[in-house]
Amino acid sequence: MYTLISFDIKYKTNQVKIENILRHFGLKKIQNNTYIGKLNNLEINYIKNNISSTINNNDTLIIFPICDRCYSKKESFGGEIKFREDLYRVF
């Protein structure tokens, strides 16, 4: 299932930690603090557990699960989003 994760993190060091976790699972950056990619439930739970120890009360992180059918209906306007193809999942 596709997963969209958006966050607002106060401290840069925490933001970097969260971005590293998201990239580790192959999520791709689509905006400054928004990532998307395909994750299974185990991977989502792993991310939740690791991120919950990183963020504090001033931070916000939202996880949106998106089914394949809904994702196929997405529309974008303006410039094309270009993903870095050199990102790989490492297990």
Score class of each variant (00 low, 15 high):
residue 88 Y to A: 05
residue 47 I to T: 03
residue 36 I to R: 00
residue 86 D to H: 14
residue 34 T to E: 07
residue 20 N to V: 07
residue 68 D to M: 07
residue 69 R to C: 11
residue 58 N to Q: 11
residue 42 L to Y: 14
residue 58 N to M: 06
residue 62 I to A: 10
residue 28 K to Y: 03
residue 29 K to S: 04
residue 21 I to A: 02
residue 40 N to G: 04
residue 15 Q to M: 15
residue 87 L to F: 11
residue 81 I to P: 03
residue 80 E to S: 13
residue 63 I to F: 05
residue 62 I to R: 11
residue 63 I to N: 04
residue 31 Q to W: 01
residue 55 I to L: 08
residue 54 T to S: 10
residue 41 N to H: 15
residue 25 F to P: 00
residue 38 K to V: 13
residue 20 N to A: 12
residue 8 D to W: 01
residue 59 D to Y: 01
residue 7 F to I: 05
residue 59 D to A: 03
residue 56 N to L: 08
residue 73 K to E: 14
residue 90 V to M: 12
residue 48 K to S: 08
residue 79 G to Y: 08
residue 81 I to E: 01
residue 84 R to G: 10
residue 44 I to S: 07
residue 18 I to H: 02
residue 19 E to L: 12
residue 38 K to D: 11
residue 75 E to Q: 14
residue 1 M to V: 11
residue 23 R to Y: 08
residue 47 I to G: 02
residue 71 Y to F: 14
residue 34 T to C: 06
residue 41 N to I: 14
residue 6 S to M: 13
residue 5 I to C: 05
residue 53 S to P: 05
residue 30 I to G: 00
residue 80 E to D: 13
residue 83 F to C: 07
residue 33 N to F: 06
residue 49 N to S: 10
residue 82 K to C: 15
residue 6 S to A: 09
residue 80 E to G: 08
residue 73 K to V: 08
residue 23 R to W: 06
residue 40 N to I: 05
residue 60 T to P: 01
residue 4 L to E: 00
residue 66 I to H: 00
residue 78 G to W: 01
residue 87 L to D: 09
residue 52 S to C: 09
residue 65 P to F: 02
residue 80 E to P: 10
residue 24 H to I: 07
residue 39 L to Q: 04
residue 88 Y to E: 13
residue 48 K to L: 12
residue 89 R to M: 11
residue 60 T to G: 12
residue 2 Y to D: 06
residue 8 D to A: 00
residue 1 M to E: 06
residue 76 S to E: 13
residue 56 N to A: 07
residue 6 S to L: 09
residue 6 S to T: 13
residue 37 G to T: 02
residue 24 H to W: 14
residue 20 N to Y: 05
residue 45 N to I: 09
residue 26 G to K: 01
residue 48 K to D: 09
residue 59 D to M: 02
residue 22 L to K: 01
residue 37 G to K: 04
residue 86 D to P: 04
residue 82 K to Y: 05
residue 47 I to W: 01
residue 26 G to S: 08
residue 86 D to E: 09
residue 78 G to C: 03
residue 79 G to H: 10
residue 73 K to L: 15
residue 86 D to M: 06
residue 26 G to D: 01
residue 2 Y to G: 04
residue 34 T to W: 00
residue 57 N to P: 05
residue 10 K to M: 10
residue 77 F to V: 15
residue 13 T to C: 11
residue 74 K to I: 11
residue 73 K to S: 14
residue 4 L to P: 01
residue 12 K to T: 11
residue 39 L to T: 01
residue 12 K to R: 12
residue 76 S to L: 07
residue 35 Y to K: 02
residue 14 N to W: 01
residue 22 L to T: 00
residue 11 Y to N: 11
residue 10 K to T: 13
residue 42 L to H: 13
residue 4 L to K: 02
residue 82 K to R: 15
residue 13 T to E: 09
residue 46 Y to V: 09
residue 19 E to R: 12
residue 74 K to Q: 13
residue 80 E to M: 13
residue 66 I to V: 15
residue 26 G to V: 07
residue 2 Y to S: 02
residue 66 I to D: 02
